[in-house]
Amino acid sequence: MARIFIVWLAVLASCVDNATYPEAQPYLPQAALRNGLGCVPNLDGQIEANELRPYVGVGARYRVATDRKVDQAGTVAANGVRVWDWGWSADAEQVLQVSAAVVVDQWYAAHFVQSPTGGPRFAVPFDADSTLDAVYSHDPQGLWLHGIASRDQAPKSGQTLLVYAKPVQTAAFPLKAGTAWQAVGKISNGKLKGLPYGGQDIYDFTADLGGKLLLPDITVDQALRVRAKVTATSMLGGSLTRVQTSFFFECLGEVARATAGQNVTDPDFSLATEVRRLAL
């Protein structure tokens, strides 16, 4: 009986104020239940603006392999569907966690202007080491690249801050096979690893083919191949060219990417210095 009384006292002693009131984040169970799937692919052969929206804070995992042969041609199946088999496994592969963050408090926030139609800016890691952030915005017309900045204001390798005078359109909605566009980004008074930098980047984008893409963890039925070629010319002279092949899918965004080595200009390159594949 005495033990029951002691337990009872312990219970009654708990009748105190709530010590852990969640000030910042109210409890919204109904909202959580209503979330469901935020975006549902309609498989209409093109990617509209709402199918390539950034989901701030939602992480995506990529398998990252280096110096790897890639098959850009794929094969055409009997039903006429092109199939790219990128489902191979690599021995030395790393997992890269990527998530978008709203550009508000970062040291470089004030240097980037709004998108042409006022869409909010967000940052995603630019390199595999996540030392650089690429600043984008999204609106009904496109996905815009505003520039690149080092994540830390004063990294050991020196500060990088490359701001385009006008944002570069990296996706033009609706994104569909058979479209191509060019964009030019001009940089003045920039910094590259602590050194002054100015120049001009010319981007050539081509969305050319659709088909099925096999990846290690998932298969997407309507991947859209988008090729990009960027030629960066410094004000001091000299230029650098990079080509890249990406695959996009409705709602998932970029599901695979292969980047060629410096100054490789063949869009059908077969040796990639880096391959990223969406993973679960």
């Binding site: 009748c15 709530n18 010590a19 852990t20 009131y21 969640p22 910042a24 984040q25 409890y27 169970p29």
Partner: peptide
Amino acid sequence: DRGLDPTGEPLYPVPPATATGQ
């Protein structure tokens, strides 16, 4: 009274208007 979980929610609803409400 065990605070918020990693998703930022308590285990059960708490009175939102009274900070010390139990």
